[in-house]
Design a protein around this nucleic acid. Structure first.
Length: 117
DNA sequence: CCATTGACGAAGA
DNA sequence: TTCTTCGCCAATG
């Protein structure tokens, strides 16, 4: 290997969005996932920020509203005020008065049950 | 190719 | 607990 300028460690040729897309689609209705969680499910090669980038450029067909930050708040409030919260509430997710939800209760758990007493 | 940004996360104050 | 700082990777100009 002689010329190695572009660090293509992982098929970054636009496959980033495709990967995130496939993962977000697996999130069941009434459940949410954090950016960091998605990054870990993606082998942790992508950072949470990278996941956010893919979602921001994602089509409307993608249920991005099920993806929130680690604080349990909607980061999209700047671009889509109230939209993400409304969509989640329609799926049975309850929000706090400060616009936050209980991650321990609504965070999607792949491969395991998600019911908390 | 370099610099800046961004819907993030973790750690420190 | 909240706010700030730094680091993360990818996309854009």
């Amino acid at each position: 290997m002689a010329t190695k300028k572009t660090t293509k460690k992982a098929k970054t040729g636009g496959a980033v969005f495709a990967r995130v897309h496939a993962l977000v689609r697996r999130i069941p209705r009434g459940r949410v996932a954090t950016y960091g969680q998605l990054s870990e499910l993606l082998d942790g090669r992508l950072s949470a920020a990278a996941v956010g980038w893919a979602l921001r450029a994602a089509p409307e067909a993608l249920p991005w509203h099920r993806v929130i930050n680690a604080r349990g708040t909607c980061s999209t409030d700047a671009e889509r005020p109230g939209l993400q919260r409304a969509l989640l509430e329609a799926e049975g997710v309850a929000f706090d008065r400060e616009g936050r939800l209980d991650l321990a209760r609504y965070q999607w758990r792949p491969k395991q049950r998600v019911d908390k007493p």
